[in-house]
Nucleic acid binder design. Structure first.
Lengths: 260, 260
DNA sequence: TTTTATTTGTCCGTATGTATA
DNA sequence: GTATACATACGGACAAATAAA
């Protein structure tokens, strides 16, 4: 099998003259798997950048000198891994690689996105002072219905929404938190304003859900796409809870990474 | 507002004679949120066990002496958190609480499930010796197309499937791994057979996807339900990669927990 | 607005090599 | 050795979605 990049464009190659059963056994790897690896490497190597449209299935079949169904099997494997995305009637496209989002004691959105070489964005969608529900109160070790400041944030990288999250802080300790956040646009600076030099993530719960209409609108994903639901608690150096967050990540754009 | 459990069943209570806007402000918490908390506590307290059907929305509205839409707002919040599940034409049901699945250096499925007081189950769905694809080779620091043993596992708690995963091991180091696993039904014992006393998780990548027909059948979830995709590498004490896994968890049943 | 071409998705079938019982 | 089941590969036809004429 020839390389993807330098494949001739009516395929008359020697491969065609080799019976299928022999070709399939040449390297002990099934044809569709070798084709998938080939395309994957073209993507990893930059020949096919994110957003690029792959050649049509028929054209790929000609280039690789295989049947269209063999190409489809390869593309299915790549789709499964989230490397490409097929759209009926339009074509198959290279997905942007997921941003690796490390989960550590020090987890700072802006640091993570900035370190990945992407432009950090984000804005305050809304805020309110409300009574803590049972779950938020438990996480912050407050009494139920204690007043908490609620910050609804949308955070993006290179202008693309990555997550929509709600952060709750005890209103008693952080009065006027919404105004401070709006001015500084950073949780770290918000806490610094209240004299907190450092803080750390203690626990992170991760599960998944399906995008609702609201999610679809705010995160700019299609309805029904997968989301990662991340619940976390941040504490100060004395392990006193400072804030808790429930964030909804577009799973198509983010992979959470845990180093242990 | 009265307790959910001892709510009278034609509601004539005093609550009705208080104007709605005053009731809503009585505790500084919105009505729907208090109702949601109330139902959540009935579930947490065991009054409404997993699988139980909630009273209909109209009946709930009567019990709480509020409009049906207020009940719906409360149920929407609980649905969002995965605590209940509404089925059109049938009713609203209590979801089983998600199993907390810690991600640590020592991550052993049977220990985690057993520690949660659930019956550990699992079986080998299939196995093969195949050539490593680009990704598996990278994770195991092998050459592409190096032979690897592939183990397809289905793992369950109390007879309910939690995850379906594929584990790859270098065939050179672990010949006949499938037979050993089938006999011992444990990765830990499989590695012990080859003289490996201990091993540890180094890196875990977490993202999400939508259940395909295959997933739906193996994990017994509905098509389109969310899955957690967990990719991990385990190494020995010298940090040499021993095995790598790609597992698909039913997100409705599992929450991954990272302690940092 | 309708038509037409393109592209992916789904179904039918056939043949062959491999692994298992 | 035989029979069976499964994965792989190929060939064709049509449906469904999209975009452009």
């Amino acid at each position: 099998m020839m390389k993807f990049a330098d494949m001739p464009r009516p395929a008359t190659s020697a491969a065609l003259r080799v019976p299928a059963r022999d070709r399939a056994l040449l390297a002990g790897v099934s044809l569709w798997r070798r084709i998938a690896d080939e395309i994957e490497q073209s993507i990893a190597g930059g020949t096919l950048p994110p957003g690029a449209q792959l050649p049509g299935e028929i054209e790929l079949a000609q280039r690789f000198a295989v049947n269209r169904h063999t190409v489809r099997r390869a593309l299915a494997a790549l789709t499964e891994q989230g490397i490409v995305r097929a759209e009926r009637g339009r074509g198959t496209f290279v997905e942007a690689p997921r941003l690796s989002y490390p989960i550590r004691r020090r987890t700072r959105f802006s640091e993570i996105v900035g370190h990945a070489g992407r432009a950090v964005g984000g804005r305050l969608i809304g805020s309110a002072v409300e009574a803590a529900d049972a779950e938020v109160a438990r996480r912050l070790t407050l009494e139920t219905a204690a007043p908490v400041v609620r910050l609804d944030l949308l955070r993006e990288a290179d202008g693309v929404p990555l997550c929509a999250g709600t952060t709750w802080l005890p209103a008693a300790r952080f009065p006027d938190a919404a105004r401070i956040y709006a001015a500084s646009n950073s949780i770290t600076r918000l806490l610094a304003y209240f004299g907190i030099r450092d803080y750390a993530r203690t626990q992170t719960h991760i599960t998944a859900a399906i995008a609702t209409a609201t999610d679809a609108a705010s995160l700019q994903v299609a309805l029904g796409r997968p989301l990662l639901i991340v619940d976390s608690v941040d504490v100060n150096l004395d392990r006193v809870p400072l804030l808790t967050t429930r964030a909804r990540f577009a799973a198509d754009r983010v992979a959470l990474v845990v180093e242990t």
